[in-house]
């Protein structure tokens, strides 16, 4: 991998709640290379969104972080609002999950775009308008000039997400964090949005973090994939390796859960038995052991660390090699 754009080391995210502290992300380290697309998959509550909200300094008020997230030699976790604000929306941008609520309802779409250009590039209003309209055209919004003067509620969900993507691309970012960008959209629109992100990655050499629970999305777009479970990284590696030969039973379970039209063997939907772990009361040893079909005595007491797997990549599992096709 080439020089990393973002290097996360030993990230811990905690939330203070009425029932005590909860660790949403524990000791997570990963890096994203220039122009690379890293997929982050995991169930709800696995910490995949919180990891990157923490990096962007957007955690809820009761959240606290430790560790490092280095961008351009700066640790974003300790940089402070002022320094972060120079990067956010500029070099580091984010596309959120729900386009229906992620745009300010009482502001025209155009102004929500131009304010980014005015803030980061210091251009005048006319230039900002021209550039914003050009960007709306680039993300294939029909009648861009007219949409520019519309309020978000006058646009469909797909168009709003295009506006969000346009917003993320305005200043030519080094890294786009797309947090479930297609979850709330129709399947046909999903493909279009993903295509926009792919084009940004190819044309601008922008690195992309694609947070999703949809393995199909990851397969289509990501170079590498990181699998999270209970706030920890359980497996990371090249996308084709992980899809062909997952080295962690949880990854294997996730892949088995994906319905396939062309395979009559999965005519019934497969699920992973049990519940996602309770972060306030994580199981001892490996967090996945209560649900794992390969559980051994050792798994209940000793937490596995990330070690190289047989097919490359890293996995946090005590098994030396996972039998493929068994789950």
């Amino acid at each position: 991998m080439n020089a990393p754009v973002l290097d996360i080391k030993n990230l811990i995210v905690r939330f203070a709640t009425n029932d005590g502290e909860v660790a949403a992300v524990s000791d997570l380290s990963l890096s994203i290379g220039k122009g690379e697309c890293l997929g982050i998959v995991g169930e709800s509550g696995s910490g995949k969104s919180q990891t990157f909200l923490a990096v962007m300094g957007l955690l809820a008020r009761n959240g606290s972080v430790s560790g490092e997230a280095i961008y351009g030699g700066v640790n974003l976790l300790t940089a402070g609002e002022r320094a972060l604000n120079e990067l956010r929306g500029n070099a580091l941008t984010m596309v959120f999950q729900d386009p229906m609520t992620s745009l300010t309802p009482h502001m025209k779409v155009g102004r929500q775009l131009t304010e980014v250009l005015i803030r980061h590039r210091g251009v005048d209003k006319t230039t900002a308008r021209n550039e914003a309209v050009a960007m709306l055209k680039r993300v294939q919004i029909p009648e861009a000039e007219r949409r520019f003067d519309m309020y978000p509620h006058e646009l469909s969900g797909g168009l709003r997400q295009r506006v969000m993507v346009a917003m993320a691309l305005l200043c030519g970012p080094a890294l786009i964090i797309a947090d479930e960008p297609t979850t709330a959209l129709d399947v046909t629109v999903q493909a279009q949005i993903l295509d926009l992100i792919r084009r940004a990655k190819d044309e601008l050499d922008t690195a992309v973090v694609l947070i999703t629970h949809d393995l199909g999305v990851v397969a289509g777009l990501a170079d590498r994939v990181a699998v999270m479970y209970g706030g920890r990284l359980v497996e990371i590696g090249e996308v084709h390796q992980i899809f062909r030969a997952p080295q962690h039973p949880y990854t294997q379970g996730l892949l088995a859960c994906t319905p396939r039209l062309d395979d009559p063997a999965t005519a019934t939907l497969v699920t992973i038995p049990g519940q996602p772990p309770n972060l306030q009361n994580l199981p001892s040893g490996c967090s996945y052991h209560p649900r794992c079909p390969y559980v051994m005595d050792r798994c209940r007491v000793e937490r596995p660390v990330l070690t190289p797997g047989v097919s490359g990549g890293l996995k946090a599992c005590h098994l030396d090699a996972l039998v493929q096709g068994a789950a």
Binding site: R88, G89, S102, T104
Partner: peptide, 24 residues
């Protein structure tokens, strides 16, 4: 969510509060 978006744009805090949050 839209206030989080505004913060993610790198707008100064007072702009986020007065321009994006206050009206609603």
């Amino acid at each position: 969510n839209y206030v989080r978006t505004a913060r993610a744009k790198g707008l100064p805090f007072h702009t986020v509060v007065l321009r994006h949050a206050l009206k609603s």
